[in-house]
Design a binder for these strands. Structure first.
Lengths: 233, 233
DNA sequence: ACATACTTTGACCGCTCAGTCATGGTTTGT
DNA sequence: ACAAACCATGACTGAGCGGTCAAAGTATGT
């Protein structure tokens, strides 16, 4: 699972030049420069606080050149997130297929392994794209306005998938009969926070260790084999 | 635990007028108006995206009046958060005391009850100040720059306390020998996400239900009585 | 009663910003 | 070879913003 390029939000309309040609290569390089510069600045100051001029300057291009490749800041954010969003869609999709097969066979272990495979997929993705993952985690709780709207879209994707997958886990007997929405939210929250801390480079151990704790937490905390000790509220 | 007033960041230097007098009452009302207006706008658009003019306008005062009561936006955010931050400090402090007493008696049940009492304290606080809690949760992951710096300070307070408390839980035998930082992060993450979803009013059940799931998750997922089934990574 | 600090207002000011576009150079397709 | 699209540049434009402050009204302390 190699990282994929950020694509420009805007392309020439009639004569883009041959693939691999001068203009094509130039567009790739410029897009990359802008994306990289923006990502770094966004992580440092937040999406909203960074100006187009600063991004262009940090990328080493003129301000007007920014608009050759992107419509506006939101367009750039969208482009930054798209490779990760696409991979996430793929991961959730593969997990859904594995779950379907496991359910058809009434195979509870295969069910559990589907979720574990998903966790590994997500771990791999975040490790391949740590900075984009961090940006997502940093911004995904903010309101979906302005340049942050693309981030909110990815959050919606993840939320929906977590809910669906949690529902399947419950129906398949992996989780007790607790409120699915609450359970899904707890899992998303815990995993995001762990990833965020790990990816921030705080001498926090690696993502696999964090994932292990998370899976333990879920399987034993919410699974049907839990002890009879129940803490009342 | 009643909610407390937001205090102005700026006060008159020589003749504030008598407590309860015309000017005192006026300052309270204006401060409240500004705080309320700002809070609403911040939740809708994020702290950074809201201008001083918008806050003043929404509060029904002239723009220059904003500066009568607050130095700048960060000052207002600080004032908004202070009552909640103060209560959190109190809650953590009370929990620490209860833990100390339980540890002195080697009383494991009292240890567990200390954490439960903390969860109840935090639930009560968030229910008393839902909008401020939501603002905190929305913004606490962002970089600590500009008007968001006071939010980051509260996040630091919570992170530090969670780590300390998790360490005590581990030493007291409530949690297995997993990495304390990871465990603390998972708990903070899960609880924040749950609170955020509940407080957003998404037909998500109440905070007590969410807290119950969270406590179950922790006590059974990470406690020493966990089943021998271990999911490898 | 009076002097003075407080309060309110909103026009003003200088600065920043997103987006535009004229100009000139480069690449492509015919 | 040539026409035309593409590309880069940065000055320009109008809008928006934070903060200031003169002028006038109000509350307070002596």
């Amino acid at each position: 699972m190699s990282s994929r390029r950020v694509l420009p939000g805007k392309s020439p309309t009639s004569r883009p030049g041959p693939e691999g040609g001068r203009r094509d290569a130039n567009r790739r390089a410029r897009t990359d420069d802008l994306a990289r510069a923006a990502l770094s600045l966004f992580l440092e100051r937040g999406i909203e606080a960074v100006s187009i001029d600063e991004i262009a300057s940090a990328a080493g291009v003129a301000k007007g050149s920014f608009y050759t490749y992107f419509h506006d800041k939101a367009d750039l954010v969208q482009a930054l997130l798209e490779p990760v969003a696409s991979s996430l869609r793929g991961a959730f999709s593969r997990c859904a297929e594995r779950l379907e097969a496991a359910n058809a066979r009434n195979d509870r272990d295969a069910l559990a392994m589907s979720y574990l495979a998903l966790a590994v997929d997500i771990r791999d993705l975040f490790e391949a794209e740590p900075l984009v993952a961090r940006l997502y985690l940093q911004e995904c709780r903010g309101p979906a306005n302005g340049a942050r709207a693309p981030v909110a879209s990815v959050a919606e994707l993840i939320r929906g998938a977590a809910l669906r997958l949690t529902e399947v886990a419950r129906a398949g007997g992996l989780l007790r009969d607790l409120d699915t929405r609450v359970t899904a939210a707890a899992m998303v929250g815990a995993s995001e926070h762990l990833c965020m801390r790990v990816l921030s480079g705080e001498d926090f151990g690696d993502l696999s260790n964090a994932m292990t704790v998370l899976v333990t937490l879920v399987m034993e905390g919410l699974g049907p084999r839990a002890s009879t000790r129940e803490v009342g509220a």
